[in-house]
């Protein structure tokens, strides 16, 4: 892809995905986390759509539509329902506090640039140079998963990982086949539904959705 308007959009969209992940570390309000997710979904869909328009690939265009619907609307919508059931809930006390999390995210981004250097060296191209962003999103998502207590934050972490993987896939492959993207999106949708049920049940049973309190269940 030659430098130009399309590439700028792609670069911006990829940057938004990573920025969203970092934003998810910063904000404690669960509703804000969900907005971050829809923002990421929209960015991913834009990226896929621009790539499809540039290559004239109809399949990728359909994928962009699926991403927009699934990641941009349906999944955040489902999560918003969980949060609405418990309006005042915030990620009050993460296992690692916000400043330390942001520093860690910076370290993870550097690490992913170091690792992905080998990948980009295989096929230097403006698109593959963006691959570290995807990898960094995956790592930050994993970090959210490890350090945040609320069930909704955990789902958000998982979705961040998925978005990071999708971003990497869009950037490194010559277009994700429709079937694969459909399968992946449906899987993620299913996971979200299951976790939504789990969170609802947890609140009904224990009166909170703090996963860290669940350690007595291990035997």
């Amino acid at each position: 892809m030659r430098p130009g308007g399309a590439l700028d959009v792609v670069q911006l969209a990829a940057g938004v995905v990573l920025a969203g992940a970092v934003l998810a570390l910063w904000r404690k309000d669960l509703r804000a986390l969900i907005s971050v997710l829809s923002l990421q979904g929209a960015a991913l869909a834009t990226l896929a759509g621009v790539l499809a328009a540039h290559d004239g690939d109809v399949g990728l265009g359909v994928v962009a539509g699926v991403v927009l619907v699934a990641k941009g609307l349906v999944i955040p919508g489902l999560l918003a329902r969980v949060v609405r059931a418990d309006p005042g809930s915030r990620e009050t006390a993460p296992l690692v506090n916000v400043p330390a999390s942001l520093v860690t995210a910076a370290v993870l981004v550097v690490l992913s640039y170091l690792v992905a250097g080998r990948l980009t060296a295989l096929f230097p191209d403006p698109l593959t140079r963006l691959a570290p962003l995807g990898l960094a999103t995956v790592l930050v998502g994993f970090f959210v998963l490890v350090t945040r207590r609320k069930a909704v934050s955990q789902i958000v972490g998982l979705l961040l990982i998925d978005n990071g993987l999708a971003l990497t896939a869009f950037l490194l492959t010559a277009g994700v086949p429709l079937l694969v993207e459909l399968g992946a999106s449906l899987d993620v949708l299913l996971v979200v539904v299951v976790l939504q049920v789990l969170a609802t049940t947890m609140r009904a049973r224990f009166g909170h959705v703090d996963l860290d309190q669940l350690r007595e269940l291990h035997d």
Partner: peptide
Amino acid sequence: PNGSVHRYLAFGF
């Protein structure tokens, strides 16, 4: 393994 989900996730991470 003390049963904490976060600890298990941290191992993986």
